[in-house]
Simulated scan of single mutants.
Amino acid sequence: MITQRVDAPGRGGHDVEGLLDELYATPPTDFVSRREELAAEAKADGRVEGARQIRAARRPTLAAWAANLLLRSEPAESQRFLELGRALRGAYRSLDADGIKELSDQRSSIVSALSRQAAALAREAGHRLSGAAQQDVVSTLRAVLADQDAADRWAAGRLESALTPPAEFPSGIAATAEAPQKPTRAPTAPRSSRTRAKDELAKRRRQRQEQLAQARKAAAMADQQFRRQRAEQADADASLQQARNLHA
């Protein structure tokens, strides 16, 4: 849940929302001390309710902090990831098994790339993620793609713990497969009714095809962007290592 703005900016030039944003980008090891500093600053500015909100903030786990850091350090990529989630959720509701498998493969590739990027950001900030923490980041990103509430929570940038994705990606297929309808003999419909039914069926097919095309395009663009970022990071790492070797 996103905290409502209740205080105007004080003498320090920051409103409480800005202070909370800063706090949740602070490494967990420094969270408590920084929380007390920001709460004291808010109280000194006369923002008593704001100070209470800051003191009520809970320290995030290392994985949640890395996910928050990813959102704030890579806003453009994070926005594309959120848009990809919306496209995928829409597409999964009307795809067949083959279409779902194709998008699942792309989804896994993108989540893996973005989780490695979060780990790199955490490492640059002085905190290496353990295997368990890295898996929690993966879980959080999978949840963001699969669930709108999880996406909203991550987009707020103040996760306190890792998010858990649903057991299955949202889809209307499972319910249909679990409860097959027995064929029943329906009365013969007038020709005009049969024509309307065929038109409606063709319309739904076109909509499914358009949704699949949009999801494929979004996934391909996101994957291309992440691959380019990884290549740029590899070049930067190689240049840094070369400079270190020259000065060794």
Rank of each mutant, 00 (worst) to 15 (best):
A118H: 02
W154N: 01
A146V: 01
A91C: 09
K101Q: 04
A97P: 00
L159P: 01
R230L: 11
P165Q: 08
N245D: 11
K217H: 14
A177I: 12
A67C: 10
S193N: 03
E74W: 14
L145Q: 10
G50K: 05
T188F: 14
R230K: 12
Q233M: 06
A119F: 11
A150D: 03
T188C: 05
A234H: 12
S33F: 12
P190I: 05
A156Q: 05
V16C: 06
L159D: 00
D152R: 10
R55I: 05
A222Y: 08
S94D: 02
K217N: 09
L71Y: 12
L246E: 10
W65C: 05
A87P: 12
A186M: 15
V6R: 11
L121A: 08
P190T: 01
R153A: 03
L82K: 10
V48N: 09
H127A: 07
R11G: 03
A66Y: 08
K198S: 03
P190R: 14
E200C: 00
R59M: 15
A57P: 03
R80G: 03
Q117G: 00
G126S: 02
G126T: 04
I54K: 08
A189M: 15
G13L: 09
T184M: 14
I100Q: 13
L246N: 10
W65F: 11
L71P: 02
L62I: 08
D96Q: 10
R5E: 07
F226E: 08
Q181E: 12
A120E: 07
R80V: 08
P28M: 03
A243Q: 15
T176D: 04
A189P: 01
T3L: 14
P27N: 04
E17L: 15
E200N: 02
Q4L: 09
Q241R: 15
G50H: 06
Q242L: 13
A125N: 06
R89N: 00
Q209K: 11
R107D: 04
R191W: 11
R123Y: 06
E36P: 04
L62C: 11
M221S: 12
E83N: 06
R185Q: 12
A91R: 07
L141C: 01
A143L: 12
S171L: 08
